[in-house]
Computed example of a mutant assay.
Amino acid sequence: MRFHAPIAALFFANSLSANAGLFKDETDRFTGNRSASWDALPSKPEDFSFSTYALYLKDSPAPGYYRVQLMTWSDRGQFRDCHHTNWLVDGARDPYLEFEYSSVSAGSAVMERFDKRVDRANLERLASAKLIEFQVCGIEGKISESDMGGMRKVLDATK
Protein backbone atom coordinates (compact mmCIF):
# COMPACT_ATOMS: atom_id res chain seq x y z
CA MET A 1 0.00 0.00 0.00
CA ARG A 2 1.26 3.43 -0.91
CA PHE A 3 1.15 6.34 1.51
CA HIS A 4 2.05 9.74 0.10
CA ALA A 5 3.03 13.04 1.74
CA PRO A 6 -0.26 14.91 1.02
CA ILE A 7 -2.34 12.38 2.91
CA ALA A 8 0.26 12.17 5.68
CA ALA A 9 -0.06 15.91 6.17
CA LEU A 10 -3.85 15.58 6.30
CA PHE A 11 -3.78 12.84 8.92
CA PHE A 12 -1.03 14.22 11.11
CA ALA A 13 -1.90 17.92 10.94
CA ASN A 14 -3.20 17.87 14.51
CA SER A 15 0.13 16.60 15.92
CA LEU A 16 -1.35 13.20 16.63
CA SER A 17 0.89 10.27 17.21
CA ALA A 18 0.22 7.35 14.89
CA ASN A 19 -0.39 5.14 17.91
CA ALA A 20 -2.26 7.40 20.27
CA GLY A 21 -4.99 9.97 20.48
CA LEU A 22 -4.86 13.54 21.60
CA PHE A 23 -7.12 15.05 24.26
CA LYS A 24 -7.96 18.74 23.95
CA ASP A 25 -10.18 21.05 25.99
CA GLU A 26 -10.24 24.50 24.41
CA THR A 27 -12.30 27.67 24.36
CA ASP A 28 -12.31 29.76 21.18
CA ARG A 29 -11.38 33.29 22.20
CA PHE A 30 -13.38 34.80 19.33
CA THR A 31 -16.68 32.94 19.72
CA GLY A 32 -16.53 31.77 23.31
CA ASN A 33 -17.47 28.26 22.17
CA ARG A 34 -15.75 25.44 24.05
CA SER A 35 -14.79 22.04 22.70
CA ALA A 36 -13.47 18.94 24.41
CA SER A 37 -12.20 16.14 22.21
CA TRP A 38 -10.33 12.87 21.98
CA ASP A 39 -8.92 12.74 18.46
CA ALA A 40 -7.43 9.39 17.46
CA LEU A 41 -5.92 8.07 14.24
CA PRO A 42 -5.53 4.48 13.11
CA SER A 43 -1.96 3.28 13.65
CA LYS A 44 -1.73 1.69 10.20
CA PRO A 45 -3.80 1.25 7.03
CA GLU A 46 -7.07 -0.63 7.48
CA ASP A 47 -6.95 -0.32 11.30
CA PHE A 48 -9.68 1.64 13.05
CA SER A 49 -9.67 4.41 15.64
CA PHE A 50 -12.50 5.90 17.69
CA SER A 51 -12.75 9.61 18.51
CA THR A 52 -15.12 11.55 20.77
CA TYR A 53 -16.10 15.22 20.54
CA ALA A 54 -18.17 17.62 22.65
CA LEU A 55 -19.07 21.19 21.73
CA TYR A 56 -20.36 23.83 24.12
CA LEU A 57 -21.97 26.84 22.52
CA LYS A 58 -21.25 30.17 24.17
CA ASP A 59 -23.32 30.81 27.30
CA SER A 60 -24.53 27.21 27.42
CA PRO A 61 -23.80 25.28 30.62
CA ALA A 62 -24.18 21.90 28.87
CA PRO A 63 -22.60 20.66 25.65
CA GLY A 64 -24.54 21.56 22.53
CA TYR A 65 -23.79 18.10 21.23
CA TYR A 66 -21.57 15.04 21.47
CA ARG A 67 -20.27 13.12 18.47
CA VAL A 68 -18.34 9.87 18.14
CA GLN A 69 -16.41 8.80 15.07
CA LEU A 70 -14.97 5.51 13.87
CA MET A 71 -12.24 6.07 11.30
CA THR A 72 -9.99 4.03 9.03
CA TRP A 73 -7.79 4.69 6.00
CA SER A 74 -6.32 2.70 3.15
CA ASP A 75 -5.06 3.12 -0.40
CA ARG A 76 -8.61 2.50 -1.64
CA GLY A 77 -12.09 3.23 -0.38
CA GLN A 78 -12.85 -0.21 0.98
CA PHE A 79 -16.32 0.76 2.30
CA ARG A 80 -17.62 2.98 -0.52
CA ASP A 81 -20.08 0.35 -1.75
CA CYS A 82 -20.83 -1.19 1.62
CA HIS A 83 -20.79 1.01 4.70
CA HIS A 84 -23.28 -0.34 7.23
CA THR A 85 -22.14 -0.98 10.79
CA ASN A 86 -23.22 -3.32 13.57
CA TRP A 87 -22.29 -2.85 17.21
CA LEU A 88 -22.02 -4.94 20.38
CA VAL A 89 -21.76 -3.17 23.74
CA ASP A 90 -20.61 -5.64 26.40
CA GLY A 91 -21.80 -8.47 24.16
CA ALA A 92 -25.31 -7.10 23.55
CA ARG A 93 -26.43 -5.83 20.13
CA ASP A 94 -26.85 -2.06 20.06
CA PRO A 95 -29.23 -0.89 17.30
CA TYR A 96 -28.93 2.72 18.53
CA LEU A 97 -25.47 3.02 17.03
CA GLU A 98 -26.37 3.74 13.41
CA PHE A 99 -23.47 5.66 11.91
CA GLU A 100 -23.30 7.94 8.86
CA TYR A 101 -20.55 7.21 6.33
CA SER A 102 -18.28 9.73 4.61
CA SER A 103 -14.91 9.56 2.87
CA VAL A 104 -12.14 11.90 1.77
CA SER A 105 -9.48 11.11 -0.83
CA ALA A 106 -6.05 12.70 -0.89
CA GLY A 107 -3.21 11.46 -3.00
CA SER A 108 -3.32 7.69 -3.09
CA ALA A 109 -5.11 7.24 0.24
CA VAL A 110 -8.76 7.35 1.30
CA MET A 111 -9.89 8.26 4.81
CA GLU A 112 -13.27 6.72 5.68
CA ARG A 113 -15.34 7.91 8.64
CA PHE A 114 -18.44 6.69 10.39
CA ASP A 115 -20.06 9.43 12.51
CA LYS A 116 -22.82 9.39 15.09
CA ARG A 117 -24.25 12.24 17.14
CA VAL A 118 -25.09 11.01 20.64
CA ASP A 119 -26.64 12.47 23.77
CA ARG A 120 -24.86 12.49 27.11
CA ALA A 121 -26.81 9.53 28.50
CA ASN A 122 -25.74 7.31 25.60
CA LEU A 123 -22.15 8.53 25.74
CA GLU A 124 -22.07 7.70 29.46
CA ARG A 125 -23.51 4.26 28.67
CA LEU A 126 -20.82 3.65 26.04
CA ALA A 127 -18.02 4.95 28.26
CA SER A 128 -19.07 2.64 31.09
CA ALA A 129 -18.84 -0.43 28.86
CA LYS A 130 -16.02 -2.90 29.33
CA LEU A 131 -15.96 -3.78 25.61
CA ILE A 132 -17.40 -2.16 22.48
CA GLU A 133 -17.13 -4.23 19.32
CA PHE A 134 -18.07 -3.25 15.80
CA GLN A 135 -18.56 -4.84 12.43
CA VAL A 136 -18.22 -2.83 9.22
CA CYS A 137 -19.34 -4.86 6.21
CA GLY A 138 -18.08 -8.10 7.71
CA ILE A 139 -14.82 -6.70 9.11
CA GLU A 140 -14.81 -6.95 12.89
CA GLY A 141 -12.94 -4.90 15.45
CA LYS A 142 -13.12 -3.43 18.92
CA ILE A 143 -12.61 0.02 20.39
CA SER A 144 -9.11 0.19 21.89
CA GLU A 145 -8.48 0.76 25.59
CA SER A 146 -6.81 4.05 24.67
CA ASP A 147 -9.86 5.28 22.74
CA MET A 148 -12.19 4.11 25.52
CA GLY A 149 -10.05 6.13 27.95
CA GLY A 150 -10.25 9.13 25.62
CA MET A 151 -14.04 8.91 25.57
CA ARG A 152 -14.03 8.90 29.37
CA LYS A 153 -11.73 11.96 29.42
CA VAL A 154 -14.21 13.88 27.27
CA LEU A 155 -17.03 12.89 29.62
CA ASP A 156 -15.03 13.90 32.70
CA ALA A 157 -14.15 17.26 31.15
CA THR A 158 -17.80 17.98 30.35
CA LYS A 159 -19.36 17.29 33.75
Rank of each mutant, 00 (worst) to 15 (best):
D115V: 08
F3D: 00
S43F: 11
S15W: 07
F114I: 02
G32M: 04
F23Q: 06
A129G: 01
V89H: 06
N14D: 14
F79W: 15
A106L: 15
T85K: 09
L57V: 08
R120L: 06
F23C: 09
K159A: 13
R152Y: 06
V118H: 06
K159S: 15
A129M: 01
P42V: 03
R120E: 12
F11T: 04
D59P: 03
A127P: 00
S17I: 11
L55Y: 07
D59V: 01
S128H: 06
S103A: 13
R117V: 15
R117T: 14
Q78Y: 14
D81P: 09
A54N: 08
G32R: 07
L126I: 12
Y66R: 01
F12K: 13
F99L: 15
S15T: 10
T31V: 07
Y53V: 01
G141Q: 05
I132C: 01
Q135I: 03
K159I: 13
W73E: 06
F11S: 05
N122E: 12
L41Q: 13
N14R: 14
L155I: 03
R67W: 02
N14K: 12
E112K: 02
R80F: 14
P63S: 06
Y53E: 11
E140R: 12
F99V: 10
F11P: 00
R120T: 03
E145S: 13
A9I: 14
A9T: 13
A5S: 08
P6M: 00
S51I: 00
P42R: 00
G141I: 08
E46Y: 13
Y53H: 13
G21H: 07
S108Y: 13
R80Q: 11
R76F: 12
D47M: 10
S51Q: 01
D28K: 07
D90W: 10
F134V: 00
I139A: 12
R93P: 15
Y65D: 04
